[in-house]
Amino acid sequence: MAEIPLLSVRNLVVEFPSRRGTLRAIDDVSFDIAEGEVLGMVGESGAGKSLTGAAIIGLLEPPGRIAGGEILLRGERIDNLAAEPMRRIRGKRIGMVFQDPLTSLNPLYTVAEQLIETIRTHISCTERVARERAIALLDRVGIPAARRRIDDYPHHFSGGMRQRVVIALALAAEPDLVIADEPTTALDVSVQAQIIDVLKEICAERGASVMLITHDMGVIAETADRVAVLYAGRLAEIGPVRDVIQAAEHPYTQGLMGSIPTLTQTDTRLVQIPGSMPRLDAIPKGCPFNPRCPHVMDRCRHDRPVLIARGSKREVACWLYEAVREEVHHG
């Protein structure tokens, strides 16, 4: 019997009722995050990666709602909790880092006030102890002269420093899981690398798992242990980062990897996937990728591919590999 994963998402379905009928933004997505693991969630805009994060922390914006499946934190369901218990889980057990640091910090309170409040909401301790913890945290995320700067307001900090404060805030209550949604997208290239390093190190130090949501394969490559690739609200491929990046199996992941220009490759043409991701109201029948897929077969247009295990750690939702498996069976 395997140990219970920290977070387990089972057959998650998120729907948006709209005037043209109900739109399925996330359709039957399942994955686990183990203790201390960094799971990257990658996909293009509209793939449902941010929605998955929002569904886990119970912050889906209405009219969006979880229409099926379950989300388990250490084996306990958290997808059907009332607002109040869910609020206690957010912050205490699941920390959050968003793309825009300005939206996660209240501009009217000093960094000290926000950090101390978060610490004391979730951990019982005196104001003085909380303040010391807060200073230590800021110091750890790389804010120079933390003891002096803790009483500054968020607007006194630069973009990169603000994101460090947000990371400190997310980790203030020592959560088991940190969900980081595009934490570096709003930052400059030279600052991005610093933030990713801080996030990765501090979570590793505290044994917190990370769900890193991003469109940037480079960030995933540098940070994650495993990666889940989403396409049109469905899981295309999930597996260890090295395997997926160096030998992608799903044709979408292959196309995605080929389309990224790199510093080492030169004058070759970029691989391009024709067309664009379908809109939610026009997701093709069968495999959602079939109209763009270079290996499309008849079956792909009718049957939705299931996740097929490839080795012990990897799963791919593509009929190409069903054939391989059958051959193996016959042989």
Binding site: S158, V189, S190, Q192, A193, Q194, G218, A221, I245, T262
Partner: peptide, 24 residues
């Protein structure tokens, strides 16, 4: 040099990066 070092390494070559410091 610093900018080049900041580019994420997709090739997973394990290239050792000089840590980038400071902000603009």
């Amino acid at each position: 040099r610093m900018l080049l070092d900041a580019v994420p390494d997709l090739a997973l070559s394990g290239r050792r990066r000089t840590p980038v410091t400071g902000e603009i």
